[in-house]
């Protein structure tokens, strides 16, 4: 593995990104992926104290729904196990949304404001206080910041000649990102994932570029993509340091 990584962003959004990293081994790429899923902590509701629930659903069912609401997580301010108080009080007829939740810390709020919790009819009321706790995805899936994290080899596409005059042109489906002969990076959805659309009448060869991986990372909104990747790399570094300390003692 080379000492320096070469990172290039292909797509970038608030909650998702696609980027190319060169100089990785498959094992390290998978380590980063797993760290993004299981090692980066996020806040999630863990205990709910129901004061009133006259809705049609049981307390336990509402509590499970609450646990799955992503909360923005200022990781610099919290340690694992620390809590934030969350509260809600909605009276019917109305629908209680995640946006109705109030928190004791202004930096912590529902990442999406329009998640329905429960529809309340006339005379029904939902009131509770809850503790959101910071923990890792390996403890419970509700703490996973990365909801869709994966990678593929970067594939290099080279034109090796013209297709025979009487050869049938069959679709050549490829997904991910390709590198052309000019070194240009092209997402396959630009040509509908079919190489025959990009190279009509040509015969092409597709090869994996060694050590080059295209990551696709999507978060639930509790963290930004950059923070998720940063923290994942940091957690691998921390564990390597722990191992080093343990071995040297």
């Amino acid at each position: 593995m080379s000492a320096e990584f070469d990172v290039e962003f292909i797509e970038r959004d608030d909650r998702s990104a696609r980027f190319l990293v060169r100089g990785l081994t498959p094992a390290f790429a998978n380590g980063i992926r797993r760290a993004m899923i299981a090692d980066v902590p996020t806040l999630s509701i863990d205990t709910v104290r129901f004061i009133e629930n006259s809705s049609v659903m049981f307390d336990e069912m509402i509590a499970l729904r609450l646990g799955l609401i992503p909360l923005t997580t200022p990781l610099a301010d919290y340690e694992i196990g620390e809590t934030v108080t969350v509260a809600l009080d909605v009276e019917g007829p109305a629908t209680a949304y995640s946006g109705d939740l109030t928190t004791s810390d202004g930096l912590v709020e529902p990442a999406d404001k329009n998640i329905p919790i429960i529809k309340l009819n006339q005379g029904q009321r939902l009131e509770f206080e809850a503790d959101a706790v910071l923990d890792r995805g390996k403890e419970h899936a509700k703490h996973q910041g990365g909801v869709s994290v994966g990678y593929r080899h970067l594939q290099r596409v080279e034109v090796i000649g013209d297709r025979g005059e009487f050869d049938e042109e069959e679709p050549h489906i490829l997904r991910g990102v390709i590198e052309t002969e000019d070194g240009e990076l092209v997402a396959t959805d630009e040509f509908d994932n079919d190489l025959t659309n990009r190279y009509p009448g040509k015969e092409v060869s597709v090869t994996d570029v060694p050590g080059a991986f295209v990551f696709h990372v999507e978060t639930d909104g509790s963290l930004s993509v950059e923070e998720l990747v940063d923290r994942a790399a940091e957690s691998i570094g921390d564990r390597a340091a722990e191992l080093k300390d343990a071995v040297s003692v």
């Binding site: 863990d46 205990t47 709910v48 104290r49 129901f50 307390d59 509590a63």
Partner: peptide
């Protein structure tokens, strides 16, 4: 009738 005390539920 639902009891008037506060009920604590673990989200697990």
């Amino acid at each position: 009738e639902r009891a008037r005390d506060i009920k604590e539920v673990d989200v697990k």
